[in-house]
Design a protein around this nucleic acid. Structure first.
Lengths: 136, 136
DNA sequence: TATGAAATGCAATAGTC
DNA sequence: GACTATTGCATTTCATA
């Protein structure tokens, strides 16, 4: 993992359909050398996937809420394990300020939300803020 | 924009380096037809960019705070314009619950944060939660 | 909007240093 | 770990339906 690998990653991040030959020109290496570096980056999971960004108008509409959790127990490990394995949890942060965790939760309907809230009620109380419009 | 376009988008989302020929086989179209559809999807910005997902260990360490804004004015449009054009604002939501906006803000140092808080103080008061560890 | 054919260029492999 | 050379395949363009 050196500077050339970082340049390859940077170029692919800008345009993942760039040709290997094109990369090789930009970083002064031959095409086979670039390919073998790319293969290694993929194998070592430094590059996780090749994908596209799609217009948000195409994505399915879903609900998003931000849940602040105030712990009443000290079962942090158990909670973190639960959060990591819940598919609705997009992001989760341990915070300092007002509360212990801030959780970004995505869901289709009220039922999904209620189920989730019931589950975290084992660990503490919560306060919930629901997005009513995404500005950005 | 029809079902074939959606299939192309789906295939590219799974692997943005898939060859055009390979797409053409999967959806029973010729390569030139797939190419012209792809060009159109890009031109119409239904595909916004071709990119890669990079291992999170490679990303620069940055600070993240969640800022709840309690409006004291009614200058929503002005605020939303400001949020949209501030590069530190990763996401911003109009919320119901406790507060008016929830803002996810990324920054390198305290100075960046203070500048931002000063700017939004024109619109209202805030409460801030700072991530001290990302669980997920 | 799709197709087929042709020219160009790229990818991928093997062999070498 | 990188280079050159080779082979086969993909991309792209254009004329046509």
């Amino acid at each position: 993992m050196d500077n050339l690998d970082l340049k390859i990653i940077y170029l692919l991040k800008e345009n993942s359909r760039i040709t290997i030959k094109n990369i090789s020109k930009k970083i002064n290496l031959t095409a086979p050398a670039v390919k073998s570096r790319m293969d290694k980056l993929i194998k070592n999971k430094l590059i996780e996937s090749f994908t596209i960004k799609v217009s948000s108008t195409l994505e399915k509409r879903k609900f998003i809420s931000f849940i602040t959790l105030f712990m009443k127990t000290t079962s942090h490990e158990q909670l973190q394990h639960f959060l990591k394995n819940n598919i609705g949890v997009l992001e989760a942060y341990r915070i300092s300020g007002n509360g212990c965790y801030l959780i970004k939760f995505i869901y289709k309907n009220d039922n999904d939300l209620i189920t989730f809230l019931d589950q975290i009620s084992l660990y503490g109380t919560h306060q919930i803020n629901t997005s009513i419009a995404q500005i950005k």
